[in-house]
Design a binder for these strands. Structure first.
Length: 906
RNA sequence: GGGCGGUUAGCUCAGCUGGUCAGAGCGCCUCGCUUACACCGAGGAGGUCACAGGUUCGAACCCUGUACCGCCCACCA
């Protein structure tokens, strides 16, 4: 048994412990140090792979803490546990970061070229990767590092190719020209999810279009239709004007044509119900190539789609002087020119919602592109079926509504990205337009359409949306598409823990792809964590500068404190504010635990050898407090089990905090101190007391281990172990709840209340803390044995001596003298009288005031209880147990009120 | 425009399926004899559980509505 240093220094504890775990090979389910029971089902958590874009923040630390908590708990219950760690290449996010880095060196994607750019990327992620893995170890992740995976490793690459080929063959992946969300800054398309709507103030311009005189074929200067637009530059791509079919104002002009200025194009006026008659002028210009609504309208009316903006959002191909101008410069020029022509009818400020790129914040430009899409309809239906049937559960449950809503209205998923860092789409095109999709690493051997040789084929230059590879994560990490032993053993996985902010991005994609490709739900439970915010409730972000580095916190307070704080404050799906107060609370708790253990270790009776093997306490020698401690430990185990089963980890920490601090330390250790020092007791009795302390502390260390693994491991090593225990707590068994002794819990509880009340009376009367006070006490017969056993402890803790027991309340009343302080324990029959060493009128006044306050409280409760009982329908309609409880309560209160009145009358 | 959360002690938050549920931590006030711990110990003050109705024998908890705050989704140019 190692000695415990006097001071708790997390830094010293934690490094050594992690090394011991690694050396013992206890993380892997099949590691040499595993104590798992092969008969139990395995428990698997595939870690949500953090982006290799830098370093981990508190949110990651929280996720890791929660995942590791579940894994450690399952491991202690004897399950084979796989906590598979990983990293995500984070295609667009990583490119965004790297672009920033190379920009500082006056380089760019274009200047480096694809090959050198990717070299830079590999070097970049090689460094961030090590930083991030190191951080996870510091947090204490008991992950199986030997199975570490990366979304860009060969296994993932193959899984991506095979998945795509299967989807293609099942007609769930298709290539088409469609309007996609184009980010001019990132120079790629992005998915609908990556477009964030941003309310902004812009302008609404009303513009007159001239109708064509059908006789001359020329615009009629006198006949115009006014359209309203927020984006005048798209005029150049207009191919129609739409009005509502029932709009009488325009009924006459439907079917006629207008001439689009600058491009001199004649386009038809069409009737379409999409138009809102009440908005603007009731006439809408239609630009199918640059607006999602217009695209649909265009399709309905067979209007051509003319692209007028290039990849960099400059005007292109219009043959006007605007070509080459940025979209906003073109807008200004066009507005000015329209004004000059006299066709600008109005300019009004306008609140609108812009789509901006989640990554670069550029305004998204809808553009026509030929790209790959995943047909989500059939996939989403299966995913919905999984949650509706309960085969996969989402926690907290309210997110199932969000899930339903999103998956019901889901649109096809654009997976093509015009980026470099990612998985290249395994599709090849031949000059005749045939498409060949091949999962072969070497590519296809011939064109699938015409048999041309590979040399004639060109691979799609695009890569996949990063979430495509992430979507395969639960099974690609286990060896899929091969039928590996790991896949057979650990798939489907158990719990997917992640933030609610990526429910759609990631969880939905994993469900859809997992169901399609493996025919089974990839996990049975989705646990959604909330976000970590700063103490002011702000989202942590680098630009705000309020990001907290977990390593700094760990250096200062320890990983255990960090984990406890993060878990303690977490309610599933709810954000939490994180600040120093929480952290100090957690660190103080670790410190408390450390010192309590140090006390226990140091309190070993001399009759027990230092290296003695653990013995269960001798049941025959247990006193009430020992039985109380054991019963409370059993209650705590049950409460911890309930919390674990409900995934309410914050509740788990609360239960353990209270049990350890408020029960074990505040009362258990204090009672034990007195007993251990009581030389009137025999050796065996004192040994039983100590063994009880050891046993209960052992239980609490086990229960707390998943939350605070380092300190519990260190402290557990200082306790004697049972014969069958392993070397390390991490692979020791989770405790099983025994039977509670409710009688002893109640009795000891009442005596604890007595001590508290005696202290209260003393403090209220402002009696010196150091004084020993002569005290008389009446304790009913059924509590007598317990009282006598605890008498030395009560005397010491209440500083009441001599503590003389009176046998009847009458005897107590008779012995009470004026100036004595009275104590009537609420809810019990215990009464006591304290005799101050020096009587003082002042103390007496304070004492009366205290008793009167207590009386008023008791009378209030009593009145409420009586009112409830006098209610006929309560007595007849409430459950018997509740009524009985109320009667008992009434009796207790009545008794207490009597006694208080009696005392005050003296 | 839909949907979802939140509103409980000065602050940050717990309160699971309605019946000792009005709680915790921090902060505050008073006091510390006691060598596990001052990262501590003892005692205490503090709340019409956002507001208004309703259901019920009984509501912080269920229903309806209102007000703020936050988030998600959404094709009004």
């Amino acid at each position: 048994m190692p000695d415990l240093p006097k001071a708790y220094t997390p830094h010293d504890v934690e490094g050594a412990i992690y090394e011991r775990w690694l050396a013992a090979d206890v993380f892997a389910p099949d590691g040499a140090g595993s104590t798992a029971d092969p008969a139990l089902p395995p428990f698997t958590i595939i870690q949500p792979p953090p982006n290799v874009t830098g370093s981990l923040h508190l949110g990651h630390a929280q996720r890791t803490a929660v995942e590791d908590l579940m894994i450690r708990h399952a491991r202690m219950r004897g399950h084979r546990t796989l906590f598979l760690p990983g990293l995500d290449h984070a295609s667009i996010a990583a490119q965004f970061v790297l672009d920033g880095i190379i920009a500082a060196e006056s380089e760019s994607r274009q200047s480096l070229g694809r090959e050198r750019y990717l070299e830079r990327m590999h070097a970049f992620v090689a460094t961030t990767r090590e930083v991030m893995l190191g951080q996870q170890r510091r947090v204490g992740a008991s992950a199986d590092w030997g199975r570490l995976r990366f979304t860009m490793d060969d296994g993932s690459a193959r899984a991506v190719r095979v998945a795509f080929e299967r989807l293609y063959r099942a007609d769930l992946a298709y290539r088409t020209e469609a309007l996609v969300n184009w980010c001019p800054g990132c120079r790629t398309s992005v998915s609908d999810l990556e477009v964030v709507s941003s309310p902004e103030t812009g302008s609404l311009w009303s513009i007159r279009y001239h109708l064509i005189d059908e006789a001359t074929g020329q615009p009629d200067p006198a006949t115009t239709i006014t359209v309203a637009t927020t984006r005048p530059e798209t005029i150049l791509g207009d191919t129609g004007v739409a009005v509502h079919p029932d709009d009488e104002r325009y009924a006459a002009v439907v079917g006629r044509h207008v001439r689009i200025p600058f491009v001199e194009r004649d386009v038809p006026i069409v009737a379409d119900e999409v138009v809102d008659r009440g908005f603007g002028t009731g006439a809408v210009k239609i630009t199918p190539a640059h607006d999602h609504d217009d695209y649909q309208t265009g399709l309905r009316h067979r209007l051509p789609a003319i692209t007028v903006l290039a990849d960099d959002a400059t005007v292109t191909g219009t043959g006007t002087r605007y070509d080459g101008l940025d979209r906003y410069a073109a807008r200004a020029a066009i507005v000015a020119d329209l004004d000059a022509l006299g066709d600008l009818a109005a300019t009004t400020p306008h609140e609108l919602v812009l789509g901006r790129c989640q990554r670069s914040n550029d305004v998204i430009e809808p553009r026509l592109k030929t790209q790959w899409f995943i047909r989500t309809g059939p996939l989403a239906r299966r995913a919905l079926e999984s949650t509706r049937s309960g085969r996969t559960r989402i926690l907290p449950e309210r997110f199932e509504k969000t899930w339903e809503h999103w998956l019901t209205d889901i649109r096809d998923w654009n997976v093509s990205r015009q980026l470099w860092w990612g998985h290249r789409i395994p599709a090849w095109y031949c000059p005749d337009g045939h498409v060949t999709v091949s999962s072969d690493a070497a590519g296809p051997t011939a064109c699938a359409g015409c048999g041309r040789p590979p040399a004639d084929l060109q691979q799609d230059p695009d890569i996949f949306d990063t979430w495509f590879s992430s979507g395969l994560w639960p099974f690609s990490t286990l060896g899929w598409p091969d039928d590996t032993p790991d896949l057979a053993t650990y798939y489907p996985t158990s719990v997917m823990e992640t933030g609610y902010d990526i429910l759609f991005f990631w969880v939905a994609r994993m469900m859809m792809l997992g169901l399609e490709l493996t025919d089974v739900e990839p996990f049975h439970t989705v646990y959604l964590s909330g976000l970590i915010r700063d103490p002011e409730g702000q989202k942590m972000s680098k630009t705000k500068g309020n990001v907290v580095d977990p390593l700094g916190v760990i250096d200062e307070s320890g990983a255990d404190a960090l984990r406890f704080a993060l878990i303690h404050g977490a309610t599933p799906g709810n954000d939490q504010r994180f600040g120093t107060a929480r952290l100090e609370h957690a660190r103080n708790f670790a410190n408390k635990l450390w010192n309590a253990t140090r006390y226990v270790v140091g309190a070993r009776p001399a009759t027990i050898a230092e290296d003695a093997e653990r013995r269960p306490p001798d049941v025959a020698k247990l006193g009430p407090t020992e039985r109380w401690l054991r019963s409370r430990a059993t209650a705590t185990i049950a409460a911890a089990d309930t919390a674990m089963a409900a995934y309410t980890f914050g509740e788990l920490t609360r239960v353990l905090y209270d049990a350890i601090w408020s029960e074990y330390c505040d009362w258990g250790l204090e009672f034990a101190k007195i007993r251990l020092a009581d030389t009137s007791l025999d050796h065996a009795t004192r040994e039983a007391t100590w063994w009880t302390l050891v046993e209960v502390l052992d239980t609490y260390l086990r229960l707390l281990h998943p939350v605070m693994p380092f300190v519990t491991e260190a402290l557990w090593a200082a306790l004697p172990h049972r014969a069958g225990d392993p070397e390390l707590l991490i692979v020791a068994r989770w405790p099983a709840a025994g039977t509670r002794d409710e009688a002893v819990e109640r009795q000891v509880g009442e005596l604890i209340d007595l001590v508290t009340e005696l202290r209260n009376a003393r403090a209220t009367a402002k009696l010196p803390a150091a004084d020993w006070l002569e005290t008389l006490v009446f304790v009913p017969l059924e509590l007598g044995g317990t009282f006598e056993a605890l008498r030395p402890a009560i005397e010491r803790l209440a500083r009441a001596r001599p503590l003389q027991r009176e046998l009847t309340p009458e005897a107590l009343a008779a012995a009470t003298r004026p100036g004595d302080l009275s104590v009537i324990v609420a809810g019990g029959d215990i009464e006591a009288t304290i005799r101050p060493a020096t009587a003082s009128g002042h103390a007496d006044a304070l004492e009366r005031a205290r008793l009167e306050r207590e009386l008023a409280d008791a009378e209030g409760y009593l009145a409420a209880a009586r009112e409830r009982l006098s209610n006929e329908s309560f007595v007849t309609r409430a459950p018997a147990a509740v009524v009985d409880g109320a009667r008992a309560r009434e009796a207790e209160l009545a008794d207490q009120v009597d006694r208080l009145r009696d005392r005050l009358a003296r």
